[in-house]
Amino acid sequence: MTIPIFYTISDNYTPYASVSIQSLINHTSPENDYTITLLVQSISDEHRESLENMSTENVHVNVFHINDDMVKPIHNSEENYLRGQFFTMSIFYRLFIPELFPQYDKAVYLDADTIVNTDIAEMYNIDIGDNMFASCPDLSIRYMPLLQEYIKKCQGIFPPEKYINNGVILFNTKAFRDKHFIDKFYYLIEKYHFDNVDPDQAYMNEICEDKIYHLPKEWDAMPNESIPEIEDPKIVHYNLFFKPWHFDDVQYGNYFWEVAKDNEYYDELRQQLAEFTDEDRQRARDDLAKMAEKVKSIEKEEYTWAKVKKFENVRI
C-alpha cells in the first residue's frame, strides 16, 4: 500500500519540515510504502538535497514546484495575511493537492510544525465516508473568547467549537475533484476577497461545512496554556506562536527535541532558540492582541462569510 503524504513549505521552513519528516519516518512500517511530497514555489538547492536525501527504502521524499498560474488569483493583499501578520503563499498550497495529484483518491497533509508519534498509516486508513476531509476541531477556540466571537460573527459557524484546524488533514481527494472544490474556491476568493485571520483554513471550513469528519483530539495536539497536555498524542502540532525553537517551556516541546537531537539541523535549531529573546517572545504573545484588532475590523467589512451566507450558498 502506498500512502501519500504532503507538506507545504517555504524555504526557511526546511529545518522544521526536516524534523517532522524524521518523526514520520521513525514510525513507518516496512509493510507500507510512503511517498512524501513537499510543495514549494522556491527552495535552495542545498535544502532540496537535504530533504530528498532523507528518503529510505520505503519512504520517498520529493520536492514539487507549484505552478504559478494556479495560485495567481491569490494576491498578496491584506485579506490573505495569516492572522493579520504576514503573507505566505504556501498556506494555500494544500488546497491544490487533489487537483495536482489525480492519481490519489486519499492523501494526508501535515503542517511542517508537527511531530508524528505513530505510523501515519493509522490515520490514512480511517474511513471518513463521503466527507470531504477529516481534521480535528481546534481546541484553542473553546478557551479564546476572541476566536469564539470571530467564528460566530464573521464566519457564521455554529457552534464555533466545530471549527477545524487544517494543519493535519486526511483528504478525500476524489471528492474534492468530483465536487469541484477548487472552482468554488477561485469563485469565492475573486468575488468577495474575504478577510480572514486564517485565510486557507476559513475557505476549507466554509466550503466543506457539515461535510467534515472530526478526528479524535489526539491527532492534532496543540500547545494550549488553558488545558493540560493530551496524553499520548498521535500528532503534535505547534500551532500559532508557541514554537519549541522559540520557547523552551512550550507544551509538548519534549516531543520535538527528542527527534531534533538526531537531525542535521539540530545545531541551527538550538541556535534559534538561544537567539530568540524575551522581547521576541513578548512580541509573539502580543500577536494575539493584533488578532483582536483584526477581528474587530473584519466585523465591519461589507462582505464577511456570515453576511454572504445570508444570500448565497458558499458550500459545495
Score class of each variant (00 low, 15 high):
F6R: 07
Y7C: 07
T8P: 07
I9C: 05
I9K: 09
I9A: 11
S10W: 12
T14W: 10
P15Q: 11
I21R: 01
Q22Y: 02
Q22N: 15
Q22R: 14
S23R: 08
I25V: 15
N26G: 14
T28V: 13
S29L: 07
P30K: 15
N32M: 05
D33M: 04
Y34K: 07
Y34H: 05
L38I: 14
Q41E: 14
Q41W: 01
S42M: 08
S42V: 10
S44I: 13
D45V: 06
R48H: 02
R48V: 00
E49N: 05
S55L: 00
T56A: 01
E57P: 00
N58S: 09
N58E: 04
V59H: 08
H60A: 00
N62D: 08
V63A: 05
F64L: 06
I66T: 04
I66Y: 01
N67Q: 14
N67K: 15
V71T: 14
E78L: 15
E78P: 03
E78Y: 14
E79I: 11
N80K: 04
G84Y: 00
Q85R: 13
Q85G: 02
F86A: 07
T88S: 04
M89T: 07
S90L: 03
S90W: 06
R94H: 11
I97A: 02
P98G: 10
L100M: 15
F101M: 06
F101N: 06
P102G: 05
P102W: 09
Y104K: 10
Y104H: 15
D105C: 02
A107W: 13
Y109H: 11
Y109S: 02
L110D: 11
L110I: 03
L110H: 05
